[in-house]
Design a protein around this nucleic acid. Sequence first.
DNA 1: ATTTCGTTTGTAATTTTATTACATTTATTG
DNA 2: CAATAAATGTAATAAAATTACAAACGAAAT
Lengths: 284, 284
Amino acid sequence: MNILEKISQDMLEFSKSEKKVAEVILANPQVAIHSSIASLAKMSNVSEPTVNRFCRRLDTKGYPDFKLHLAQSLANGTPYVNRHVDEFDSPAEYTNKIFESTMASLEVARQSVDVAMVNRVVDLLTQARKISFFGLGASASVAHDAVNKFFRFNVPVVHFEDILMQRMSCMNSTEGDVVICISHTGRTKSLVEVANIARENDATVVGITSPDSPLSKACNYVLTLSVPEDTDLYMPMASRIAQLTLIDVLATGFTLRRGNKFRENLKRVKDTLRGSRFNRPENS
Amino acid sequence: MNILEKISQDMLEFSKSEKKVAEVILANPQVAIHSSIASLAKMSNVSEPTVNRFCRRLDTKGYPDFKLHLAQSLANGTPYVNRHVDEFDSPAEYTNKIFESTMASLEVARQSVDVAMVNRVVDLLTQARKISFFGLGASASVAHDAVNKFFRFNVPVVHFEDILMQRMSCMNSTEGDVVICISHTGRTKSLVEVANIARENDATVVGITSPDSPLSKACNYVLTLSVPEDTDLYMPMASRIAQLTLIDVLATGFTLRRGNKFRENLKRVKDTLRGSRFNRPENS
DNA sequence: ATTTCGTTTGTAATTTTATTACATTTATTG
DNA sequence: CAATAAATGTAATAAAATTACAAACGAAAT
């Protein structure tokens, strides 16, 4: 496992001085690998043995071994740690931090996905009479995006942003219909109600949400996503991206299930767009 | 450069004893990185200074530095590569592949972002009288999402999916208005027309698109994103995610520029949502 | 507030590891 | 077969990391 991730993950378990060390390393891991234990201790305002203990806490043999691990993590070109943006960041800094923490979140999300459940939901979707995607707020655009994918499959796809329309649509659902409810927190009342209405009308309800949430309890099937959301800025960011990627996974599973001939259909949909585009100089 | 390759490449320049060292390392690099200079010397039947000289010949500072380089070379299992989904992938396989290639694309996207331009666009946005987000197809949901972010800033934000509405909206734009046009290919005719209309009416047009596209030429400012899109399945995936992340960057830049007090506003917007939610057992 | 215990942290000694300076050997060329 | 340059090794030195132990700190109990 990437030791940088491990550091930020174990941050809570560290003692005060160990945290100092952790911060210095996370702030500038490239410098850390080229420092001796003495200079790293000085940079962190901590004694040398503390640095050593810090290394051992991370299950390395000692400082040199730790450096090796660190070097390897950095070599991956992936210091994808969820680094928080702060007030004094330059544009370059916050840009990189956001990209990196998005990648870090995706990695976490990937590990939290229940593949068996993905498979089951893909099953459901391929057999669905009608598929609905509902989300509110930030998740509305995820639902929107899902429609954009699934309509290509030539399956009836439904999507409303309006709560009343969502409710009415669910009222009319029947067995064989699949309703996908998207919510990061899973605590949006109206969406839980929508899920309940759908179930009362025999639709199969699938939630894309966090585990143990009210929404997850209202669903027949739940695709859980545990994403560390940086709530400092009060805007949903990583959760959304993870949801979208999961939608991609479902869409891909769908096309794979339908087989080769089906994929030729997709190409046709794409080719239809050509008329609306400026052609490339060469090739498409 | 990968130091293992460098070793085998420089093999001819090595002296007899150095060759011994090189061979031992190449034969089992994993062992080498966990050995001290003494044990490596013994393994190679060579003295310690010879090992040291060997390291220096490879342009490293000494043995420990050499080990760092070696460790990095070994770490390169090249993690997030854009691995293409194929027909016979199991759910676990395609799930992982999609997550990983999404991360890989984000990494590429990150490197392609022009930070100075980000800064300029943030400038523009903070001074805008009105901000419009337009996109079609898959980019429509990105625009949708952008609205969800920027409306929190208490700035007039506009978004239409309908082409005619987009055109009309641009007709009414004036100096001080910022129009953001989102398109992966930058070849969607209607969107280029929308951009032109906006410019004719003195709005500032910003494109989030690929370089050298017709759309990029129609804009005052262009935020280019070069994302390797897996076109096998004929669905926009990575491009979208990169666009969304860039929107996050812009939104973050915006809040940072506006300063601390402003961020308290954001918290208020978020708190307003609380009434519509099921509360958490503890805490918010 | 004060004592006590457990934890955390630092100081100083020790050990390990790497590097340097120099001597010896080995090859190379006239 | 010298003479010289290059390569290698030995031993001393320096640097770095680790250990053992003592001081400081903080939480719980009196």
